[in-house]
Design a protein around this nucleic acid. Structure first.
Length: 572
RNA sequence: CGGGGUGUGGCGCAGUCAGGCAGCGCGCUUGCUUUGGGAGCAAGAUGUCGGAGGUUCAAAUCCUCUCACCCCGACCA
């Protein structure tokens, strides 16, 4: 492709509203333009990256036995009402009405569509297993879109769905997808780790996320993992063993109320009473589907809202407002406690049950209660793990402690069970003629997010450095001065030779000065650069340079094809 | 949803407090020169100052409403 014939609007100055280096580079290098918050136009270079990555995904999916289809972006609301997600997904769902006032939505994912499709088609176990996938645009009305393609309201995703007759068959299907995922990300230049994750509104029993680990704020997810990687989980999912040494009293002491003027936070109360935070118990008032719940965690620990939400089977969970807290406890924020709390379920973390003579709020302004004991002084409605794991905790099994890392979620896999096949009727007859719902799985890869994640790693001060597997073009060809026939002639010859050999070349035929061309080349980041200039041309040679290396190789014109192939092989 | 901020030519911004010819840099067009790391000179083009309403002799500027975008928050009592 000749530069003069395509559209690559590079910018000299950076865009102030792009925070991540990867986002910045996509804009400056002329890959994307923003249309609205979280909505982007993909320009020619980005389009090629998307196609390259999509093709890698296709190859690996097809190899794993998946079948590509295309489902509609639009979906009638009824299907989502049938699965229950029309309500549970809430405001993230892009809803609309057609001219007949019929409720529709723009799909954020396609479990309902694909399950409904098969519900009308599936008859026999002989048709299974089945794995259907598509690469298509998705919509999520994100609360706050940011970071360019990382968190958009419209984005492209590969989503696959498996249907199996039993657990054993399902496990094979799931493992095939996991294997394919590792292969896909590796080919795109990313080392990823698989971590346990919460299933969220997707439902089902287990889920995994594929994380690309980064040190920057691009890593929106926190991962806890052992050093050897034997355990790895998203922090909101992570199980743990608490290693804190707790000094407990042998005898229960008499409970009494004490004044704690001006001490509302854990820090203030521990300082005031002169006790360790582990001797305090936090009482957090939450609203679960509109109803108040008291959650008790040890003073030095934090609540894991996802765990609490799951324990309560709630579809919406949020911290109560100060007004709601006052209404519920009769005291301002900071003095809630379980003793004497009426008509509010009390969910207690197991770490709290090990404590004796602890401190809680007294449900009265500036008062706390000391020497409180569970069962004697209040009853737990339920005892369940609701504590957020943290670095320094032990993994649920195995030695050592967990460390925290940041990651970008580039893929996920869900074990859906029969949630959708039952509610939407995807059932089959077994060999005995008995009807069963399919065991399902769903599998996503961010097609637009992943290349941006790649850029978080593959760049330098001057611009992008694409891995050749997903680069828009393998080679950028630069005659430094197109006024000189002596440069244009070999440039045209090389362009022809390489193109005919099936090598993708971006030929910078613009009448720009050398500096402009070099800077643009470094910015847009093609893996191999061929430079034609007077200096080396005098010796009958042209210059070959890898974007990721400093050294320049001088090669005779005739050998260029062989040398480019050799370098391409080396860069793989 | 709450708080803060920003909307001025393609991009980046000044001008707003204190009303009085709509500016600067980059980019763009044309010509000449230049040509190995974002060239020089010259001549140009490009704006409903986010939108609507109001105050005023006069509004980018003051007032009211509104829209869009950005940042922070919406767990850690």
């Amino acid at each position: 492709m000749r530069w003069s014939q395509t559209y690559i609007p590079t910018l000299r100055e950076k865009q102030s509203d792009a925070e991540l280096i990867s986002h910045q580079l996509l804009i400056r290098a002329g890959y994307i333009r923003k249309l609205a918050a979280g909505v982007y136009v993909y320009l020619p270079l980005m389009q090629r990256v998307i196609e390259k990555f999509s093709n890698i995904v296709r190859e690996e999916m097809n190899k794993a036995g998946a079948l590509e289809i295309t489902m509609s972006v639009l979906c009638p609301a009824e299907l989502w009402q049938a699965s229950g997600r029309y309500e549970t997904v809430g405001k993230e769902l892009m809803r609309l009405k057609d001219r007949h006032d019929h409720a529709m939505l723009l799909c954020p994912t396609h479990e309902e569509t694909v399950t409904h499709l098969l519900a009308g088609e599936l008859k026999s176990y002989k048709q299974l297993p089945l794995n259907l996938y598509q690469i298509q645009v998705k919509f999520r009305d994100e609360i706050r879109p940011r970071f360019g393609l990382m968190r958009g309201r419209e984005f492209i995703m590969k989503d696959a769905y498996t249907f199996d007759v039993d657990e054993a068959s399902f496990n094979r299907s799931y493992q095939a997808m996991v294997d394919a995922y590792f292969a896909i990300f590796k080919r795109a230049g990313l080392d990823v780790i698989k971590v346990e994750s919460d299933t969220g509104t997707m439902g089902g029993k287990e889920a995994h996320e594929f994380m690309f680990l980064v040190d920057t704020e691009a890593g929106e997810e926190i991962i806890l993992t052992t050093k050897d990687g034997s355990y790895a989980a998203n922090v909101e999912k992570a199980d743990f063993r608490d290693l804190a040494e707790i000094k407990t009293d042998s005898e229960m002491k008499e409970m009494r109320t004490v004044d704690t003027p001006g001490a509302a936070t854990i820090e203030e109360v521990t300082a005031f009473l002169g006790v360790d935070p582990t001797r305090l118990v936090k009482t957090l008032i939450c609203m679960a589907d509109g109803k108040p719940v008291a959650a008790l965690v040890r003073g030095d620990r934090d609540l894991n809202e996802v765990k609490l939400k799951n324990a309560l089977s709630a579809s919406e969970l949020e911290m109560a407002s100060p007004e709601q807290i006052e209404e519920c406890t009769g005291a301002p924020v900071g003095f809630a406690g379980p003793v004497g709390l009426k008509d509010v379920p009390i969910i207690v973390d197991p770490l709290v049950t090990k404590l004796r003579n602890f401190v809680v709020g007294a449900n009265a302004n500036e008062k706390h209660i000391v020497n409180v004991n569970i069962d004697r002084d209040f009853k737990a409605t339920r005892i369940v793990d609701i504590t957020l794991a943290r670095a320094g905790d032990a993994p649920p099994v195995g030695d050592g402690v967990m460390i925290a890392k940041r990651g970008i979620e580039v893929g996920n896999t869900f074990m859906l069970g029969t949630k959708y096949s039952e509610s939407l009727g995807a059932k089959f007859l077994d060999a005995e003629g008995k009807e069963h719902p399919c065991i399902m799985g769903s599998y996503g890869i961010g097609i637009t997010r992943t290349p941006q994640a790649v850029l978080e790693k593959y760049h330098d001060r001057k611009g992008i450095i694409w891995p050749s597997s997903i680069a828009p073009y393998l080679v950028e060809l630069i005659p430094l001065n197109v006024q000189q026939e002596a440069q244009v002639q070999p440039a045209e010859a090389i362009y022809k030779t390489l193109t005919e050999a099936g090598i993708e070349v971006l030929y910078d035929d613009r009448p720009e000065r050398a500096g402009v061309k070099f800077n643009d080349a470094d910015l847009i980041g093609m893996p191999i650069r061929i430079t034609i200039g007077d200096k080396s041309l005098k010796e009958g040679k042209i210059e070959l340079k890898a974007r990721c290396e400093e050294t320049v190789e001088l090669v005779p014109l005739k050998e260029i094809l062989a040398k480019v192939r050799k370098m391409a092989e080396r860069l793989k």
